[in-house]
Simulated assay, not measured.
Amino acid sequence: LAAVGIGAASVSAGTSDSFTIPGTQSQKALDLLGKEFPQASAAGATARVVFEAPDGQKLTSGGNKTEVASLVADLEKAS
């Protein structure tokens, strides 16, 4: 019972969902974005994805269409 009381007391100070791994490229990028654009938040980040077909081919033909559809489905799952 004492262990539960001590555990509850240590957690009652509040929790944080902040997570960093110093030195990684991702962390360096997030730190730079925070410095250059303090009003922005990585939680609201967006990205633009551009597809390009090989020379002489179209994105809407054959394997290209299948590959684009697969990548789009993967991106939708990530959001």
Rank of each mutant, 00 (worst) to 15 (best):
L30E: 03
G14W: 03
A29P: 00
A78H: 04
G63T: 05
I21V: 12
E67K: 12
A8I: 10
L32Y: 07
L32C: 00
Q25K: 09
A13I: 06
S79G: 14
L33C: 10
L30W: 01
F51W: 14
D74A: 15
L32S: 11
F51P: 05
S18K: 05
P54S: 14
A8W: 08
G5F: 11
K28M: 08
L59T: 02
Q39M: 05
A45W: 08
A8S: 01
T15N: 07
Q27L: 09
E52Y: 12
F37W: 13
V68M: 13
K35M: 11
L32P: 00
D17M: 09
T24P: 05
P22R: 03
P38I: 00
A13R: 04
E76P: 06
V11S: 07
A43P: 01
N64C: 06
T24F: 06
A45Y: 04
V4H: 00
V4G: 08
D17V: 10
K77D: 14
Q57K: 15
D31S: 14
K58A: 13
G62Y: 06
G62D: 15
S26D: 08
L75G: 11
L75V: 02
S79E: 13
T46I: 06
Q25L: 09
G34V: 07
S16L: 06
S70A: 15
T66M: 05
L33H: 11
L75T: 01
V49N: 11
S70R: 15
A9I: 03
L59K: 01
G5P: 02
D55A: 15
K28F: 00
T24C: 11
Q57F: 12
L33G: 02
S26G: 12
A73G: 08
L59N: 00
A47E: 12
S79Y: 11
L33M: 15
V11N: 05
P54C: 10
T24Y: 08
A73V: 02
D31E: 15
K28T: 04
G14F: 09
V50Q: 13
K65P: 00
L59E: 06
Q39W: 08
A13C: 04
S41D: 13
I21F: 04
T60N: 12
V72D: 07
A8G: 06
S70T: 15
S26R: 00
P54Y: 09
K58W: 05
G63M: 01
P38H: 09
A13K: 02
I21N: 09
P22E: 13
A69W: 03
G63D: 12
I21R: 07
R48P: 02
P54H: 08
